[in-house]
Amino acid sequence: MATFRIKRFNPEKQAEPYYEEFQLEVPAGATLLDCMNLIKWTLDGSFSYRMSCRSAICGSCAVKANGHALLACQRQAEHIVDNDETITLEPLGNMKPVKDLVVDFTPFWDKINKVKPYLQPKEAPPEKERRQSQEEFLLIDDSSTCIMCGACYSDCNTLEVDDNFLGPAALAKAQRFVSDSRDSKTLERVKMLSEPGGIWDCTHCAECVERCPKPARPFDRIKEIMTVALDKGVHNNTGARHALSFFNSVKRSGNLNENRIPVESMGFFNIPGLLSLLPVGIRMFLKGKVPPVIHHSIEEVDDVKRIFKELDQ
């Protein structure tokens, strides 16, 4: 017997959400979605959530179980119960709850729309197919497995504090076109994706990779866009400058020059940006956290340089 502790919410009846517990004998091999259906069909018909395909391809049934987003149809219930034989079900995060486990996907889809999620081909199509090598196919293979379930969006730590962030799903979708050999707008795409709210606002926590139920692994895709952006010379933004400064600092000295990186990230001629650093600098000074004025290399800096040299080759 397992306990399902479900966050209930129905604004037609009650303004505030509450938790309700259901006891259920979990049948052998039952998925979490099977259990949710048993609760709905035998215990409380008003329990509301989305579902459709049952085979982890339609992306409808993403919910939070024990604090993390997952696809309910993809996981065996017995693998999710915690030590108290309990599964806590809540709606996805970073989106507005509508009723019980149903959330409003509008902002999610708006952001997908923002990345121009369609092929912008180079020229008029040939009579037959455009040729694409298996290697080129593999560059877009993983991102194309995304099922738009919103699990990554739900648990994204950046979105929790920054509504403006495009989020992992939209960025993974963007990579699918950035790296498509048939697309002509690579430069325009990476420029747009380098703007505030784009790739450089990702905090690299990789929570999205943990939550992704498919091989789409959004953070890996974000890194691929970053690489293309830097390769294409799209450096004129804080994120790219920060990455390059970080890279150069390690290359030169084997560690981070913490005085130089913030300044290089903002840009030497970005006066308002530099001024915005001042309050932080002053607080650091008052707390005695200012790094040494003269930056020292680590002892094994020659080894580091050798590594960089080999990587370059």
């Binding site: 369609y118 092929l119 081909p121 199509p125 197919e129 455009r130 040729r131 694409q132 090598s133 298996q134 080129e136 196919f137 877009i140 293979d141 194309s144 076109f177 498509d180 048939r182 697309d183």
Partner: peptide, 13 residues
Amino acid sequence: EHMGCIFSRTADG
């Protein structure tokens, strides 16, 4: 394919 649908490919694309 022209719309952008992705397909697995042969050795010659």
